[in-house]
Each structure stands twice: as C-alpha cells, then as structure tokens.
Amino acid sequence: MTALDTYSLRLIKLYRIRKAAFRNDMDSLLQKFDEQVSNIVEHRRTISLEGLPIFVRDDETKLFLTCLETDPVERATRGVTVGILTVLEDYVGPNSQSTVVNTAIVLEEDIILDDLPDLPTAFAYLFGLLYGLNMEFPKELKYTFEAVQHIFMELTSTCSQRIRSFKTKLLTKV
C-alpha cells in the first residue's frame, strides 16, 4: 500500500493528462473519483489500480468484475482465470451510489478469498497469491501485473518496453 500511495497522485495526474488517448473508460473512472468526498486516500488507491489496466492497454474487464448480491456468483466467475469480484447491493435508491457488500478474489472460476475490506487490499492479496504460487500472469493482464511487479513492488530489474515507457512517463511527466 505504501508503494501505491507513493505513486497514486502521479498515476491520477498521468491518467488525466492522457485520458483523451483512451476509451471513455478513463474519463468515467476519473469522473467517479472527482465525485468522492470522503475517504479520499482509499478512493485514490482504487482509481489508481482501476486505471492501470486501461493505461497499459490491458483488458480491465477481465480483472475487475462486478455483480449484484442476488446474482448467482457462478455466472460472474464463469471463465475467469484471475479476477477481483465486487458484489454490490441490489437496491439503490434514487441519486445514490451502490454499496459494496463484498470484495473477493477469483482464481480459476472459484472464489478463494472473500470479505476483503476494499479493492486495493484484494489486489494486493491477488498479486501476492499469483507471485507466491508462481502462477503465470494472464495474457490479457500481462502488462498490469508486470507494472505492479516492476514499478510498485520493485521485484524485477528487467521489464517490457511498454512498462519501461510507462515508468518513464510516471516518473518524469507528472
């Protein structure tokens, strides 16, 4: 979390600078962040992680999954190799945001860890599991996990050109 906190402001600034280069996903993500008025540090961490796959051009929909609490979990986890599932409250009144009921880690279509306090914690556990179990990063999320491994965790000295470029932008342009 300390490494994420160190880079989160820079990440968000970089996302804002480059948001036109991405689909509307980055813009809606930043708009969601701008609407937050409480627990800014947690929201900053969450937006930093949710924006990372978008920025490195991985498929964020393969990593961050959502479902309603009345939906069958099997439907949400079907076909998921690696992911973080956020379960939202079913009923949301007018002009209010969905309440997170549960955050869970999915590996090989099964929930292996749930009742996690927030998305950044779930992401840290997920990365730790992948790294500790020596699992290969999913192809559609390769650069996201490589960025975490190389930039945030400083576990490797070599990385792909895409992540090297991302690190240079992160450290120099913001």
Results as ranks from 00 to 15, higher is better:
residue 1 M to V: 09
residue 2 T to V: 10
residue 3 A to G: 03
residue 6 T to C: 06
residue 7 Y to Q: 05
residue 8 S to I: 01
residue 9 L to W: 07
residue 10 R to G: 13
residue 11 L to I: 10
residue 12 I to Y: 09
residue 12 I to M: 06
residue 14 L to G: 00
residue 15 Y to V: 05
residue 16 R to N: 15
residue 18 R to Y: 11
residue 19 K to A: 05
residue 21 A to R: 15
residue 21 A to T: 14
residue 22 F to A: 07
residue 22 F to V: 06
residue 22 F to D: 08
residue 22 F to E: 10
residue 28 S to W: 02
residue 28 S to Q: 11
residue 30 L to I: 05
residue 33 F to R: 15
residue 34 D to I: 05
residue 35 E to R: 14
residue 37 V to D: 08
residue 40 I to E: 03
residue 40 I to H: 03
residue 43 H to N: 08
residue 47 I to C: 12
residue 47 I to Y: 03
residue 49 L to E: 00
residue 50 E to A: 09
residue 54 I to H: 11
residue 60 E to C: 04
residue 60 E to H: 08
residue 61 T to N: 11
residue 62 K to E: 13
residue 63 L to K: 00
residue 64 F to Y: 14
residue 65 L to N: 05
residue 66 T to E: 12
residue 69 E to S: 05
residue 69 E to R: 00
residue 71 D to P: 01
residue 72 P to M: 10
residue 72 P to T: 12
residue 72 P to N: 14
residue 74 E to V: 11
residue 75 R to G: 09
residue 75 R to H: 13
residue 75 R to E: 15
residue 76 A to H: 01
residue 76 A to Y: 00
residue 76 A to T: 03
residue 84 I to K: 00
residue 85 L to H: 02
residue 86 T to S: 12
residue 89 E to L: 09
residue 89 E to D: 14
residue 90 D to H: 10
residue 91 Y to T: 14
residue 92 V to K: 13
residue 92 V to M: 11
residue 92 V to T: 15
residue 94 P to C: 10
residue 95 N to C: 05
residue 96 S to I: 10
residue 98 S to K: 13
residue 99 T to C: 04
residue 100 V to E: 12
residue 101 V to I: 15
residue 101 V to L: 04
residue 101 V to A: 02
residue 103 T to Q: 06
residue 103 T to L: 00
residue 106 V to L: 09
residue 107 L to S: 00
residue 107 L to F: 01
residue 108 E to R: 09
residue 109 E to S: 08
residue 109 E to G: 04
residue 110 D to A: 07
residue 111 I to H: 10
residue 112 I to G: 10
residue 113 L to N: 14
residue 114 D to V: 01
residue 115 D to N: 13
residue 116 L to S: 01
residue 120 P to S: 02
residue 120 P to M: 03
residue 120 P to N: 08
residue 122 A to R: 02
residue 122 A to I: 07
residue 124 A to K: 04
residue 124 A to E: 15
residue 125 Y to Q: 09
residue 125 Y to S: 06
residue 126 L to M: 03
residue 127 F to E: 01
residue 129 L to D: 02
residue 132 G to K: 11
residue 132 G to A: 12
residue 133 L to D: 11
residue 138 P to G: 06
residue 138 P to L: 04
residue 139 K to E: 14
residue 139 K to N: 06
residue 140 E to I: 04
residue 142 K to Q: 11
residue 142 K to D: 12
residue 143 Y to R: 14
residue 146 E to N: 10
residue 148 V to M: 07
residue 149 Q to E: 15
residue 150 H to V: 07
residue 152 F to H: 04
residue 153 M to T: 07
residue 156 T to A: 10
residue 156 T to F: 04
residue 160 S to R: 08
residue 160 S to E: 03
residue 162 R to C: 09
residue 163 I to K: 00
residue 167 K to E: 08
residue 167 K to F: 11
residue 168 T to R: 04
residue 168 T to F: 08
residue 169 K to V: 08
residue 171 L to P: 07
residue 173 K to V: 12
residue 174 V to W: 07
